[in-house]
């Protein structure tokens, strides 16, 4: 039996149910909740009018504001590009000498290049270009493909052994694996290459020196100082890519090396690449 009563304490009616003498108050929905429901429904309604919402068969309502994330993004990028159009254009077209001669522009280049370097180059070449096993140091003066901004920007653009049609190309043959030298000769050449760091001896009559002239000089040069543009590096200095210890040199001679630097042409703009080239060129000085 249900009998609606008024509760004398609160003044609200009961639901009328009676469970062994226990009755339930029928108190109204709190005002705050009602206001909340009204406000959210209004917000949804406004949203429907302003924003893309309802599907209509093959299309959808575009909303009064006609917002579109892709258009917004394009506008964002265009605005940012306009703000720096002037100096970015100069970065992309001026002579490197002219950029270096303009302290403001040069400061901009170095400042803009630093995060680009961190994002794109640092994973391989290390913080401040210190390099690592297999990844050349950039903060020294030993260059394989040239250390001027012009050379560096070319290297960044086309890469080394990369997929770019004009890629720089270099390969150290696997003298051991491909049986051009036997194991004793490899051992002998390992010591010889190590000895080169103390200075190249001209007209050395030793067997190792003869083997060097016959097999290695074509790329590394008769004086072992490397030939720029072949990718064959100077063996007489202290800079190594794969390590100058006997084990690493032995590996290099045995199995060859073919490092790979990606092309950045499609990832970075011309201005970005040129700023990076200036940044890398300025590196050795910065570390001193």
């Amino acid at each position: 039996m249900s009998k609606i009563e008024r509760d004398p304490v609160t003044g609200y009616t009961t639901t009328g149910h009676d469970w062994n003498g226990i009755k339930e108050l029928n108190s109204p929905i709190p005002r705050a909740v009602i206001i909340f429901i009204i406000v959210t429904h209004l917000a949804a309604l406004i949203g429907w009018i302003l924003l893309p919402t309802w599907p209509l068969g093959r299309t959808f309502t575009k909303g009064v504001l006609e917002v579109d994330q892709k258009t917004d993004l394009a506008a964002d990028i265009a605005a940012a590009n306009t703000a720096r159009a002037d100096w970015m254009a100069r970065m992309a077209t001026l002579d490197f000498d002219a950029i270096r001669a303009d302290p403001d522009l040069m400061a901009r280049a170095l400042e803009t290049a630093a995060p680009l370097f961190g994002q794109n180059c640092e994973p391989c070449h290390g913080k401040n270009g210190i390099g690592g096993p297999g990844f050349p140091q950039l903060s020294d003066n030993a260059w394989i493909w040239g250390g001027t901004s012009e050379d560096i920007s070319k290297t960044i653009t086309v890469g080394i052994n990369s997929a770019h049609p004009d890629s720089r190309f270099a390969q150290m043959p696997a003298f051991g694996r491909d049986e051009m030298l036997d194991r004793t000769q490899i051992g002998m050449m390992t010591s010889y290459v190590q000895s080169l760091s103390n200075g190249f001896i001209a007209n050395d009559p030793s067997e190792a020196a003869t083997l060097f002239q016959d097999n290695c000089a074509a790329c590394h040069g008769e004086d072992a100082r490397g030939v720029e543009g072949t990718g064959a590096l100077n063996l007489t200095d202290a800079a190594w890519i794969y390590g100058g210890d006997a084990a690493s040199i032995w590996q290099t001679l045995m199995n060859g090396r073919e490092g790979h630097m990606p092309t950045w042409q499609s990832r970075l703009s011309t201005a970005d690449i040129r700023m990076l080239a200036l940044y890398v060129e300025a590196m050795p000085g910065k570390l001193q």
Partner: peptide, 21 residues
């Protein structure tokens, strides 16, 4: 894809701290 060399990926997956301290 194409951002780093295969050698870098091999070194990085073997131990990321070898290339990114």
């Amino acid at each position: 894809g194409g951002k780093y060399s295969d050698e870098w990926h091999a070194a990085h997956l073997n131990n990321p701290r070898d290339v990114v301290p």
